[in-house]
Design a protein around this nucleic acid. Structure first.
Lengths: 235, 235
DNA sequence: ACCTGAACACCGTTCAAGT
DNA sequence: ACCTGAACACCGTTCAAGT
């Protein structure tokens, strides 16, 4: 692992001398290397030294070639890169379907990149792709004749729900029944002081499909409430 | 800073010898010391060594006296401690008012302890106070004759919105107009490619009151949608 | 048994020295 | 000017030695 060449099957002299660099290190390569590490092992595994080793470079070269002045800026780039995945190629004409599609797509991306949620709290969506994403959200409700502030309020409400809900799903996926805290929880509930929690089926399904159904239920509530406030009850 | 006694104003011999320890170090004291640090300087400022210095102890004593085996467990304790602040002394009888009160209270606590949002993504609410908080949430909709799963869905939906919305508020409060990313953003929008974002008033109020109004709007949408699904339209 | 000092294996980043 | 090795000032945690 610490030997970038691996176990040499031939004498040194037979191996071609290392090329200066197969492809010059670029910002894109650095970001593309960091994202899978964060996906698979969490944000904490993304260290400058680890990236350098992975890219067969020296730690400080990561800063030089990615043109970043701190690790935080690398995180900014990672957040914006993933924001691009949230963009829909096309927006359904109906505002409700448009918001629903955006929310579902966003959720899928968040479940693929759990660290995004951790970062977005401190790294606002001000990069190029994050800006495009926000523009697309406002576009979704563009045909309703609402004032800009109201459109922003709708975007923030839906996005808040999606991000918060993704956190819950990730939480539940991460906490195995064997975790100590889960056992403690069960003992607490068995005390009888938590009748509502006790009423929950301990064997309720926690499949991805079940989580998605749960998510859609809340999303429908929110969209229905928005609809009720912008479309005065007909009849 | 590294000298726990400060600049001595008297010769050593005049100063009373250090008491063994004013009060024995306990878990509660450690957690109570950690929370204000996180509130004021962020989670990253909470280090074992910093805590030890603050409490006039050695780093490893923090582990011993708080009975924790890792820093993560300290974070677990911090999350649960703050969860207690979210509990309402009394629940309004009307389910909608109950959910609204919980949401507003929760939001106030989150704005006081911004790091809670960062942690809750990986530290599920399985401690004693977190469990009480979840029980209270389920209790809020206990008088409607809903099945347990539906009550859980309502709790998760409201809580998701509250947590996600708090992140947005904290984001906006944190990003000063002088931040480089904000300037970049303005230039992007000036390009004309983002008509919806361009339509937003750049001088719109960003006071805490304005944020709260924004929050309440989305909360009302969500509650209205929930109401519509459990109370079939009368008339 | 409980507590703790020194040491270990890491971090991100500074900075002076290279090219 | 751009790049980088060594060094600095930190981390969380292990572990052996104390009481």
């Amino acid at each position: 692992m610490s030997d970038p060449v691996g176990e040499p099957p031939t004498p040194v002299w037979d191996r071609p001398p290392p090329a200066r660099r197969r492809t010059p290190l670029t910002r894109e390569i650095v970001v593309a290397a960091a994202i899978p590490i964060a996906d698979a092992e969490g944000l904490a595994a993304v260290t400058v030294r680890r990236l350098a080793a992975e890219l067969d470079a020296r730690p400080m070269s990561v800063y030089s070639y990615a043109r970043i002045t701190s690790k935080e800026e690398l995180f900014d780039l990672m957040v914006d890169e993933v924001s691009a995945e949230m963009l829909l190629p096309e927006l359904p004409p109906d505002w409700r379907e448009a918001l629903r599609s955006i929310a579902i797509r966003c959720r899928q991306v968040l479940l693929r990149h759990p660290w995004w949620v951790e970062l977005v709290g401190q790294h606002v969506l001000l990069g190029p792709n994050g800006t495009r994403y926000r523009e697309q959200n406002l576009d979704a409700v563009g045909g309703l004749g609402l004032d800009p502030e109201s459109r922003l309020a709708i975007y923030v409400a839906v996005q808040s729900y999606v991000v918060g809900q993704a956190m819950f799903t990730l939480d539940e996926e991460a906490s195995t029944p064997a975790a100590p805290a889960v056992g403690y929880q069960a003992a607490l509930i068995a005390s009888g002081d938590f009748p509502n929690l006790a009423g929950l089926d301990p064997h309720r399904p926690t499949t991805p499909e079940a989580h998605e159904q749960f998510f859609r239920r809340g999303l429908d509530w929110l969209l229905r409430g928005i609809a009720a406030s912008i479309e005065p009850p007909a009849g």
